[in-house]
Amino acid sequence: MTTLDDPGRLLAVWEAAAAAPPAARGPVLLHAAGLLPDLDAALDLPVGTVAALAARLSVDSFGDPVDAVLTCGCGEVLDVALPLDPVAGLPAGDAGAVAGGTLRVRAPTARDLLAAGRSGDPLGTLLARCVRDADGRPVAPGELTADQRRAVDTAAEELAGAAAVVLRTRCPGCGDGVVATLDVAELLWERVVRRAPAVLAEVAALAAAYGWAEADILALPAGRRRVYLALATGRAA
């Protein structure tokens, strides 16, 4: 089981993902954590697969559920506990035939999202990259009929898996329903971002107190590091 319990690995993940564009952050996180050994291959995984793996890494490293904050249209702020363990088990399809078998749709990857982000027509770029005709040739988005576009949209939702999880709750203030798309990789990143500064603060305190190198501090077992930190700061372990 791969986790981010090791502080050295956590900092490596934090540093690598901080430099990654948002569309690629999930694969970069999983690669830096050691869950996916090949970054190029990780960038070519379906987004649903990446999301499911990110959910599993989040649960195994930080526990479940994760605390999230949503804001209703009325201004009410909602604290929500999101269980990610079920998300980690969601299947993610790779490709499927639609529109009477004349089109084939595959799930987008991080590489597709990066290409779409650089394009002046993001949706058209995704369609051109992810939809093929019966002969395997790219389909020009403008040539798709309304029925084909609807079939492609439906197939894309089914293939997205954990990347298309939607949270639905009700606002206790106004009673309206609140709907939010769950970005699992971003939730994992937020948990990493919250933890990394605490690890760096521990390293700084121990380095200042004992003159130890960062690598030596990070190599200490967690229990021993806590005791040394308590001695250095005068607080009980």
Rank of each mutant, 00 (worst) to 15 (best):
V193N: 11
P197K: 15
A51K: 00
H31C: 00
C72L: 08
G26N: 08
A52E: 03
G26T: 04
L218I: 09
D94Q: 15
A198T: 15
R111H: 09
E202M: 11
V179S: 14
R129L: 08
A156H: 05
A17C: 08
A51S: 10
L53S: 01
A213E: 14
R235V: 14
L220Q: 08
T181Q: 15
A18N: 11
L182V: 07
D183P: 04
S61C: 01
V227L: 10
L103H: 07
V166A: 08
T169E: 07
V13N: 00
V152N: 05
R9S: 03
E190I: 12
P46Y: 03
T71Q: 14
E186C: 09
A81Y: 05
A128G: 08
P138F: 12
E186T: 07
L39R: 06
T71E: 15
T125C: 02
P46G: 07
D133K: 03
V59Y: 00
L11R: 02
V105Y: 01
E76D: 13
L103I: 03
C174Y: 02
R25S: 07
T102K: 14
P221Y: 12
G142H: 10
Y210G: 13
P37W: 05
E214M: 13
G8R: 10
E186K: 08
G100S: 05
A207N: 11
L82E: 09
A128R: 14
A180F: 01
G101H: 09
P7F: 09
P37Y: 10
A19P: 14
P46T: 09
T181A: 15
G8H: 02
V166F: 00
A107C: 14
G161L: 01
C171F: 07
V166G: 09
V66K: 05
A204I: 10
A213I: 12
V199Q: 11
L90S: 00
R132T: 12
A41V: 06
D216A: 08
T2W: 05
A162T: 01
V166Y: 11
A107V: 01
D216W: 10
V227E: 12
A42N: 02
A207Y: 12
W14P: 08
Q148D: 07
A68S: 12
A92K: 00
D5W: 09
T154I: 10
C74L: 12
R168Q: 13
R129C: 06
D6R: 07
P172K: 13
A146C: 04
L30E: 00
G136Y: 01
A204N: 15
C130N: 07
V203L: 05
A156F: 03
G161F: 02
G120W: 05
R118V: 09
D183S: 06
A207K: 12
G63P: 04
A232Y: 11
A237R: 15
A19S: 15
E158S: 13
G223L: 13
A155Y: 05
A116I: 02
V59L: 02
